[in-house]
Design a protein around this nucleic acid. Structure first.
Lengths: 151, 151
DNA sequence: ATTAAACCTGACTAAACCAGTATACTTAAT
DNA sequence: ATTAAGTATACTGGTTTAGTCAGGTTTAAT
């Protein structure tokens, strides 16, 4: 079991890739695909989803490409997940639709309630992490690895 | 997207159901299935998985049935998930096998690393919640709902 | 000894989902 | 007009999900 699927991972990678490019020049999907090792046509689908959610902008035609639609610190991972899933909530909520049976919340209800607590945990982490955070993390790691004192 | 699948939910329900029965009398799978609304033959598979992991014990033959193998506060939800998944780790680990490339941890690595942080969050919650906790939660809710002051 | 109630095993299946491919089309710059 | 780029949608092989089903074994009660 792993938490993200490949589509989600690709989408996040693509967003980070765009965030790391010098701004204002549009990035072609082909370049992103090569840099990040994502199958070209599959990436196109993913970029379409990101665009549909307004996270990236595109310029069509020759010399066109993609750009982030907002600063990287205004795009959360939760935004990306929602975009790829084409939904406006991360998890299908249950307790709102099915309030506990008065006098007898079934065992099932208890389990779903617990499940939603975990989902809440996940959601808040996804919503509090931005693309910029991940870019920073990469830069930090790059620095700490290339500067090796004593070598 | 929802976090548990139905098999997992059924397994947790079954464990709670067993925990709520007066101890020492074995519980038949049929009874559990009816009480919790779980398809009979499917529940059998699930109980087999729980038994395989040593979480429940069974007594065969007429008048037989199932019991928790340990006190409910010694069985965590993580135990149940591992049992149903028939694996000994909740999530497939990545960073142990693939350390970051020295001089250049790829974007992919950063994403997987983030993913594992989330997985850690989930794991610790699953491991710190026991079947007894969920039983208690049910009892609390039952009480607070049946005692309605002013009615 | 027989029987019925229970658990055990493994094969099977329809539907959905995943991870892509493939194809045809639109748009814009040269 | 040509070409390089994004857009849209259909398709496909493989896997997973959510079960079902048939048959076998064990045990307790009669």
């Amino acid at each position: 079991m792993s938490f993200f699927n490949s589509k989600l991972r690709y989408a996040i990678c693509a967003a980070i890739d765009l965030a790391m490019q010098p701004s204002h020049d549009a990035c072609q999907s082909r370049e992103i695909a090569v840099r990040q090792g994502i199958p070209g046509p599959y990436l196109d689908q993913i970029l379409a989803a990101l665009k549909g959610a307004g996270l990236i902008r595109s310029v069509r035609g020759a010399g066109g490409g993609y750009n982030l639609a907002r600063p990287a610190d205004k795009i959360t991972i939760a935004d990306i997940v929602r975009a790829v899933l084409r939904t406006d909530r991360l998890f299908s909520s249950f307790s709102e639709e099915e309030p506990p049976d008065l006098n007898a919340p079934g065992v099932t209800w208890i389990v779903r309630d617990f499940e939603e607590q975990i989902e809440g945990l996940i959601s808040s982490r996804l919503a509090s992490t931005t693309v910029a955070d991940l870019v920073n993390r990469k830069v930090e790691l790059d620095d700490s690895l290339s500067y090796m004192p004593g070598i």
